[in-house]
Design a protein around this nucleic acid. Sequence first.
DNA 1: TGATGAATAAACATCA
DNA 2: CTGATGTTTATTCATC
Length: 576
Amino acid sequence: MMTPQVITPQQMQQILQQQVLSPQQLQVLLQQQQALMLQQQLQEFYKKQQEQLQLQLLQQQHAGKQPKEQQQVATQQLAFQQQLLQMQQLQQQHLLSLQRQGLLTIQPGQPALPLQPIAQGMIPTELQQLWKEVTSAHSAEETTGNNHSSLDLTTTCVSSSAPSKTSLIINPHASTNGQLSVHTPKRESLSHEEHPHSHPLYGHGVCKWPGCEAVCEDFPSFLKHLNSEHALDDRSTAQCRVQMQVVQQLELQLAKDKERLQAMMTHLHVKSTEPKTAPQPLNLVSSVTLSKSASEASPQSLPHTPTTPTTPITPVTQGPSVITTTSMHTVGPIRRRYSDKYNVPITSADIAQNQEFYKNAEVRPPFTYASLIRQAILESPEKQLTLNEIYNWFTRMFAYFRRNAATWKNAVRHNLSLHKCFVRVENVKGAVWTVDEVEFQKRRPQKISGNPSLIKNMQSSHSYCTPLNAALQASMAENSIPLYTTASMGNPTLGNLASAIREELNGAMEHTNSNESDSSPGRSPMQAVHPVHVKEEPLDPEEAEGPLSLVTTANHSPDFDHDRDYEDEPVNEDME
DNA sequence: TGATGAATAAACATCA
DNA sequence: CTGATGTTTATTCATC
């Protein structure tokens, strides 16, 4: 049953759903899958990148014999190097994020992944020099037209620094049908063989099960804790699925950035070299392992046929679109279910957690207009805003709202008028809008008021997913890395991921509402599901009771923007 | 399948 | 008259 191969997310999902594995098997499987998939992706990615870059360099050097062209080549190389470094930084961010969550165990003094020596040990000039050397050393290869025939540098770089722990053997040509295929002859040694007390879910005396952080003094007690607290039940299964979502999301972004880089290279390559030695630009698509299903999903599908992320099990089919940012400008209105469809209130910290992301990524925030308006108003010092100030907040906080102003502004006005929770107050200098918090709370719980268990589930689910989600988002936001996805394709953005996770967890937990007791039905959903601030260092013994104890430091991100309103800068310069 | 909530579109009114 | 603001109605869609 434990085949030494990377299984597809769908297969994983099936396993999880059918619950055919024991808890230990499930955990081990998940750890291995996650580590393997990530490492395989990363290694393959860097290998391909360097192949492309090297080929690019080679061809350009050959083509450009005049000094002018040489300069141009150098400039382009620089751009590539910068892109490469950016990608490496992105990968490191993701790795750090995963490491924090216990997904990856990095041994001290041992490079966890090949990207580290690349990213840390080489500055652009060094890279360039290295490329030159390699290019000159293999100049005889340039006529073969084969872009992977002479890549001693890359293969050396990748394989020599690959973690011996995993002994991965990468097959760079095996990314077909979106399946990941890594041959891992020593897969079982991933975590236990050489370090019998090293466990991906155990570190610093803390259980690193996502959202747990229980303190375990030694390894045996950790194992005991693992078996008792994280047995194969609905909760653990749900958490596993969440973790899958996180990993899948990382993979999606990786695929997207790969596409972007390769499109850059293709673009420049086509311009600057003869097609004779060129790798077919169309190859680029096939090299993106995860984009196959997306390319199958009818690229010409209309923006009005949204594929809402209601099936987070297979977000792959929605994510890596061939459509890039340029095509997003024509994104029309789409309807989307928002994350408060289960009456999970969108709170300030929910929005605040995502602010950096939505500021930069032209992705529709998964919050209702009402939630956003309320947030805007509550953020203001006076808890009141004019309509125009609300507009400005929208455009300032969300890249998405820098377009189609007529549409969303109308929606804002519509919401202000429609919902009783927004109160118009005549002021000396005009009218301002305020929030009637009581009314705002009223309009939410009515739907599930008769079913407290659902509320409970929501709270549980939120507690499960928030740390993961937040960590993921934090890793993205730190670099202000937007997801270059398309709203028209119903892409699983981070925000959507949050809702998708909640949704899925809610479904998973629907029939397990008898075990958690920390949520009193009388409590306001707002309080109960208040967002969680995820700590960076899982060393707090107070959080040792399990996932549900994570509702700790309700954090309103004090640095959430500077409350500077009225900035009448033309934020809407590109509105149609 | 109907009810409901939300998004979107649009008509219309008011006012500076 | 024009544009901003505000109200209201209708339609569509997704979900339950």
